[in-house]
Design a protein around this nucleic acid. Structure first.
Lengths: 145, 145
DNA sequence: ATGGATGCAAAAGTTTTGCAAAGAA
DNA sequence: TTCTTTGCAAAACTTTTGCATCCAT
């Protein structure tokens, strides 16, 4: 996924924040590294390009960009947190525990489930992003059974 | 929830493991503290009773009891991990982000969703435990909206 | 020039590990 | 007695924070 740099920069400046090389590097990194990017992966990536860019900045910028809704925070296996570009439409993932592959799940699939929860339990599920863990086609067939 | 101590002890010994006061204390703690118990909460609890019981032991025993399927590991808010008694039947939770209350969700509710994922995406979701985050009745009404 | 952002380093928090000693079977 | 388990302490890892400096506007 590529992001609209000009648009994002305009948005940030309009809100009184600054567009810095670090923020651009970190955003590019999340973009290039794909879905479910960990802070450490971001750090590894940007640190190669800008060796003085610190871990503290990576964490701060990831938080910042999430607050600005430019990034989204997602849960990954083992209860860790990761980030990805915040798309206009919520989407979800099927994460294979064996090969770590990702399958994207359109939002529509979750809607009926959400509605059921709402009517049966009067509980409004936050469905900005969900990850489900399990096993994909390939791993199920190769693992036998 | 109370657990069948005698049965569990028998199971452990049968597998060649030992029943120690620490293991019993930690199991009792998870039992008493309820669903979604963090390692730190367990430590706080047992440390009051047995001040020499160390954090290392808490972590080791929680892992151990999970391997033995006496406990189950669950994801809670903020990507943290917690534990609870492993019931005979999988169950799931609706976790309120506002008041942290828990609603139990019977396994049956998830079955249709699971089947849908399996047929549409050929992906087998691991449904040993799922937590959904959102807002409960009370918090939705009091927060306005 | 002004105030938000960064780098560094240190701290805080969480989980793991090595090893000698303790203790369950 | 034997061998698993524990306690302690230290290490490993992840994330946060204080503060002086820097730099985008």
């Amino acid at each position: 996924m590529s992001h609209n740099t000009a648009e994002i920069n305009r948005q940030l400046r309009k809100s009184g924040y600054r567009v810095t090389p670090q923020r651009q590097l970190i955003l590019d990194a999340v973009c290039q590294l794909g879905d479910h990017v960990t802070p450490e992966a971001v750090y590894d990536h940007v640190h190669r390009i800008a060796p003085t860019l610190s871990r503290a900045t990576v964490y701060r910028v990831l938080h910042f960009l999430t607050e600005q809704q430019i990034l989204a925070m997602v849960h990954i296996a083992d209860g860790r947190l990761a980030y990805e570009m915040a798309g206009p439409e919520p989407h979800h993932h099927l994460v294979c525990r064996t090969c770590d592959s990702l399958l994207e799940l359109p939002h529509s699939v979750l809607l009926s489930f959400r509605l059921a929860m709402e009517s049966q339990y009067d509980f409004e599920i936050d469905v900005s992003h969900l990850s489900f863990f399990g096993h994909c086609t390939d791993c199920r067939s190769s693992a036998g059974a």
